[in-house]
């Protein structure tokens, strides 16, 4: 049982984590893990992000979360990176691609354009 104050505190803390407001340099990675995403192979992608972030020691700056269906079936597995107000949608991911995104985008700060939604033909 949580008190109203406790709930409000959770709400505020989590809001900052999701919107990254007031957290310069922080990034949030979400991997689409609904049934559709899992079937398309999202689990190894999520694991690669979690392991990659852990190995690089950037866990304090980057959070990796699973999420539901983003709604773009034929692009699954999908991973999105939120960096400040910038949103990047990586599509048709696999573990290898995830490793590269960790290195170049999450650590290096440079979007891996060739894996993004606009660069991918379906």
């Amino acid at each position: 049982m949580k008190s109203m104050q406790e709930l409000a505190a959770i709400r505020e803390a989590m809001k900052a984590e999701i919107t990254l407001a007031g957290k310069p340099g922080a990034k949030r990675v979400v991997v689409g893990m609904a049934t559709c995403g899992i079937a398309a192979g999202a689990t190894p992608v999520l694991n690669a992000f979690v392991d990659g972030v852990k190995e690089a020691g950037i866990g304090d700056k980057v959070s990796v979360k699973q999420t539901g269906c983003v709604g773009i079936c034929q692009y699954e597995p999908v991973a999105e990176v939120y960096d400040g107000t910038e949103r990047t949608t990586y599509v048709k991911m696999d573990a290898e691609k995830a490793k590269r995104v960790v290195e170049e985008h999450l650590i290096g700060g440079k979007v891996v354009t060739e894996y993004t939604i606009g660069a991918t033909e379906v």
Partner: peptide, 21 residues
């Protein structure tokens, strides 16, 4: 679908952050 693909569905805190409850 406001929260779909945005929050972690297995974490109530994230739902709370989106004005949940």
């Amino acid at each position: 679908l406001k929260n779909c693909g945005v929050i972690d569905p297995e974490n109530i805190d994230e739902y709370l952050a989106m004005d949940g409850y």
